[in-house]
Design a protein around this nucleic acid. Structure first.
Lengths: 209, 209
DNA sequence: TATATCATGTAATCGGTTACATGATTAA
DNA sequence: TTAATCATGTAACCGATTACATGATATA
């Protein structure tokens, strides 16, 4: 019953995966604003990480106090100033130190699979509608990933028009990651289609709405 | 610049996916303690959702105040009392209402893929060690899922020894989910092995440590 | 004889989501 | 002319993780 005050940890973790996601993009692509970073996240990191823009901004502020990035303010008319962040050497070192650790974490939160798991509690027809919505969602994801691959392929072979537009094309990992994402979504969508067939067999009268 | 107090939302969401994960397991399997639920989560829901035991306990308390479950205390010697929770009709209705909504959410947090994405910033040999650790992790996951499938298959054909031990065997969704999880991990591990081959080609001298 | 693991839960902290703000274009 | 979307950020809240507790039995 005795209450023991927790002693401050010898070295509180000052960064987590999303921190390195931001840091990696700044190093990979170059100086950017929080807004740009959000888009880079959605395009490049969507297969393995999602982040709200608000959190990216927060991480940027934190990393600035850590001395990992610097910020330069660009004034604009009728729009909030752009705060352009750049990675500096301490940040680059932190990124490398993280890469040196083999520790990995994995979190999956898939509400579609959860609903399917307990699908026997769904009212008639409801599960079919959910699966259809899920199939549409994942087909769109698959299409995006295929488009990403297309960009990687063309820009790799052709001379670059916009300078600095596509540094990742020459990177050996970007394409591999995209290929995995595509394959995973192909498996997922095929599985959903088979499930849909099964549901249609069971409840043919509910096939449309 | 005016500060506007936020008005309380007309109807605050009283549940989120994990709530229905707990609820679904209680309905699917039967009355359980928080401890049992944690194990059920790890076995049945691991392909799509992870939860710390502390959060499961918290959800149970919340759901009790909502009137979705009831709790009965079982006294034990030299061990904290078991609090056994049971789903009641309001909870069953909430579960069905959730199933009736086609809305789905998806969150992926894969630190391994993140490290690989920025693998060009890793010190020599570090990425290879990370990929090896990741491969071991996912091979273990794959083995677990295959074992789950095995259990589903045998218990489905044979008469059940322990009563109530395996209600899910007859369920059409449990096996399908497991099959998807297996296929996904097969794709993932194969991809990791190919990546490892690529890395070994690049840095043959670093192949061991 | 330490050290895990089983068994069962509570409390504090923090990562991440949702809401709040603003104003200019573009589309319906 | 109403509503999106682009563009850019801050503040509040809450879901989820980590730490705290306890005491058996099993394992090294």
């Amino acid at each position: 019953m005795a209450i023991r005050r927790k002693e401050p940890p010898a070295e509180q973790p000052e960064a987590y995966p999303i921190t390195y996601g931001v840091l990696g993009l700044l190093s990979f692509i170059g100086p950017m604003s929080g807004y740009d970073l959000k888009r880079a996240f959605d395009h490049i990191l969507s297969p393995m990480w999602g982040a709200a823009h608000s959190q990216i901004y927060k991480e940027l502020r934190r990393m600035e106090t850590l001395g990992w990035v610097t910020m330069e303010r660009e004034e604009q008319e009728s729009r909030p100033d752009r705060k352009v962040y750049s990675i500096i050497s301490a940040g680059q070192q932190a990124l490398t130190a993280w890469e040196a650790q083999p520790k990995i974490s994995l979190q999956m939160r898939d509400e579609l699979l959860l609903k399917i798991t307990f699908g026997s509690f769904a009212p008639p027809g409801a599960l079919m509608a959910t699966v259809k919505a899920g199939l549409a969602f994942h087909e769109e994801r698959l299409a995006e990933f295929r488009e990403n691959l297309h960009h990687l392929l063309v820009r790799h072979d052709q001379p670059q028009e916009e300078p600095g537009a596509n540094q990742n094309a020459g990177d050996p990992f970007a394409r591999r990651i995209t290929l995995l994402a595509i394959e995973a979504e192909e498996v997922y969508t095929r599985w959903l289609r088979e499930l849909l067939d099964f549901l249609k067999e069971r409840e043919p009268q509910l096939e449309d709405r």
